[in-house]
Design a protein around this nucleic acid. Sequence first.
DNA 1: CTGAAAGCGCTTACAG
DNA 2: CTGAAAGCGCTTACAG
Lengths: 340, 340
Amino acid sequence: MPRKEPLPTIADVAHHAGVSIATVSRVLNKNVFVEEETTRCVQEAIAELGYVPRTAARTLASRRTKTLGLIMSDISGAFFSPMLRGIEAAVRQAGYSLLVYATGEIEEGRSTHRALGEHNTDGLLVFTDSLEIQELVRLYKIGFPVVLMHQSSPGGTDIPTVTIENKDGAAKIVSHLIQVHGRRRIVFLRGLSTHEDAVWRERGYRDALVTNGIPFDDRFLIDGKFNEEVARDAMKKLIETGLDFDAVFSADDDSASGALLALREAGIRVPRDVALVGFDDAPFSPYLNPPLTTIHAPTEEVGSTATRQLLRLIQDEKVDPLILLPTELVIRSSCGCDGK
Amino acid sequence: MPRKEPLPTIADVAHHAGVSIATVSRVLNKNVFVEEETTRCVQEAIAELGYVPRTAARTLASRRTKTLGLIMSDISGAFFSPMLRGIEAAVRQAGYSLLVYATGEIEEGRSTHRALGEHNTDGLLVFTDSLEIQELVRLYKIGFPVVLMHQSSPGGTDIPTVTIENKDGAAKIVSHLIQVHGRRRIVFLRGLSTHEDAVWRERGYRDALVTNGIPFDDRFLIDGKFNEEVARDAMKKLIETGLDFDAVFSADDDSASGALLALREAGIRVPRDVALVGFDDAPFSPYLNPPLTTIHAPTEEVGSTATRQLLRLIQDEKVDPLILLPTELVIRSSCGCDGK
DNA sequence: CTGAAAGCGCTTACAG
DNA sequence: CTGAAAGCGCTTACAG
């Protein structure tokens, strides 16, 4: 049952090696040349004492935390894992640390306890709707590095953003439904309207309709809210209305799986009676039955790209105000194509 | 285009409010009574200057980081999201911060750059196989708080562990296959053998066989490695051998979805010809076709429980050496039960 | 190439 | 109830 011993400090190492703490600091940081012999001495002392420099002391003295913060509203959904994966890898590669914080819905009232910010990070990665506009503006005004993901910069600010080609992707897949499979009565299972992704995907849907000469009909618009169960219920209700439709474009794969369940329960065959397509290309999508035709969203890449942008920002390098990562049509069977 | 201004410090606040920095510190920490009038003055100054105490300075002075570290080998799989969710929520609730680090496979050689440890956290949450035994022992020896998840304490140490009833769950679901559905030729699609979860699930499988008087036959043992594609290939190969089997118990739901694909491709009907069951109850499992019968693993709870244990450890409170969270049979249709 | 010393921005006994 | 001051463990000009 070990007891907590006081950890060795740089002074202990210096004493052990018979040098000054400045010298120890230099071999640690490798920013100033130190005689080879001395270096070896110091490294031995470090190894012997099991010395690890305290991060807080380094941060305080150097005025850099070497830490990035990630703020998300919610840790769930197929979306989260790949995005964090991309971020974490890029952060680690740069030798930074990553602090993660979930806000739930945006916290009501003023942020009482500021979890992540200029006091504990060098910059922030902010995912859609996880930070109040007011706080975003404050950070912008003090010149604190922030990169937004899947959200555009609030009015009056100029915060770099990384997102994906939502509209283009949505239009592509809806056009596929129309042009390849001759579907014309296409339901749009809309996402959470507060998410910009949802808005753009709806525009893509409408654009494709226009392009193909199909009038928009709002009876074909229902709310899935990026949620399986909500989508399932919405789909079920739509079916009960008796509306005649021959395809469903789901704003994300989560709600597509919910819709699939509702369709199956109603005895509607996919894709024969109704074609179904999604958006995101979630990990489970190939395993649905039928395998889901969808738009691949490069989520991991959004994370890594945003991280690299943030690191540039921190180093005062030039940064693109908006990066739009391309999306890609992934054809499987649920659209009616004879995928494997 | 805002420029970085120097951030206000506690001295600025003190000056602005006409008090000493000690007083500002006291109203910040609320640990010593300060006259109401004075408190208000200080709070106004804080608000006016937009002051936020620098974490590094606090940490250095108080010798507590108020930060927990999470070390995982890999950020992916259905497993990750709920676990992080549980951890993050518990960490946030306790007013701590969370540092996340992924090791990839265990890093070769000595950990050159120690990412997370006593130098930047008050304690560590360690997921299976993400830290070398040697490092675990070192942390144990210096009395640094660590809690393991899904991994037992290395020999000679006594590190608290939180995991789930793997063996019991596996035995339950295999018995279900045997007793309810009369299956006796049950393939076990084993997990990664380095994970203790896999080992315990295999024991549960064998126990159920013994209990029900079925001899163990290693031809029924194949490797899925907790991976969809590996599982799919392994299943395909098994089918090609012509072995006669009437059920598959998959060590996790990811590989179950891979197996399902292989079975479908071979024209084998699930559950009529072969019953299929999994383990974990991943978010996508209800959406497979047929919906997957599986064992629910309380992954989010593992995360939150481990976090609470770690916080107790940090506060020198008593901690259970081993917490086994119960698992539960979730009956859907892939086993042959007429689930919805 | 190396050391002495100031300073980073807080907390916390110690006085009063 | 409040202030002066030491100290947390580093980095970084400044000398030499």
